[in-house]
Simulated scan of single mutants.
Amino acid sequence: MNGAADLVTVAHGTRNLDGNQVSRALAAAASARLGVSATAAFVELSEPLFADVVARLERPAVVVPLLLSTGFHVRVDLPDAVSRASAPVTLGAPLGPDPLLARAQAARLVEAGATPGQRVVLVAAGSTDEAATSDQLGAVALLARAWRGPVELATLSGHGPRPAEVVRPGDAVSPYLLSPGFFHDRLRRESPEGAIVAEVIGAHPLVVDLVVERAQQLAPQLVC
């Protein structure tokens, strides 16, 4: 079908090429599902930059941030770029926390060899924004429900305990990260021997479902 609005996804961006490819894969899969044009944009570190994309729009667009919690980019950078858009833009909320992300995390844990119910530490990139901490705790609760087992929180920066303080040998580690890159590499280095570290959430089919769902909420005419 042809919608009245295009789709733009926006991720943080990374110098890791595989990490940026996750965002592009999600945008392409959502585009195919919705039957609309889609662009994968980035806040920084990769092109096209989100500010440039919205500045040269020729049609209305809905924007689905591929960001897992509230923070400076969500509160300041994205709205600022949208304010200078060349066509009407509807900006969505961060992708997380959400039950679909939790289910995708649970699937990644099983793929890594974790046993349902095993103690899990959800590790987020972290932030000094209190709203981000609240979102991360929400993600912990959702993963505990999907995993049906205990889940603790650790962060790699900002507020919260570090993985070294929380992860024990025999634990499973669920990266609350959409893409591979600096934080996932660091998490693998800092996790104790004997801990199972799952892959990042990535372009899991459930994440595609979530991107499509968010786009449809922003523009109800985008119905498959």
Rank of each mutant, 00 (worst) to 15 (best):
F50N: 04
L66G: 03
V89M: 06
G35K: 09
S86C: 00
E44S: 12
L26N: 05
A81T: 05
A61F: 08
T39P: 04
R75I: 08
T39F: 04
S46C: 14
D77H: 01
S83K: 11
R59P: 02
E47H: 15
L49W: 04
R59T: 13
L95D: 06
L66P: 05
A28L: 12
L26M: 08
R84I: 01
A30H: 09
D77P: 02
E58F: 01
P94V: 11
A40T: 09
F42V: 06
V54R: 04
D52H: 15
V89P: 10
D80G: 09
F50V: 03
P65F: 13
A27F: 04
S31A: 15
G71M: 13
A30E: 04
G96K: 06
A27D: 02
A87W: 00
S83G: 09
A28P: 02
R84W: 03
P60S: 12
S86N: 00
L78Q: 02
R59V: 02
P60M: 11
E58M: 09
A32G: 13
L26H: 11
P60V: 05
A87H: 01
H73C: 11
L45M: 14
V74L: 15
L91H: 08
P65T: 12
A40P: 06
S46A: 15
S69M: 09
V76G: 00
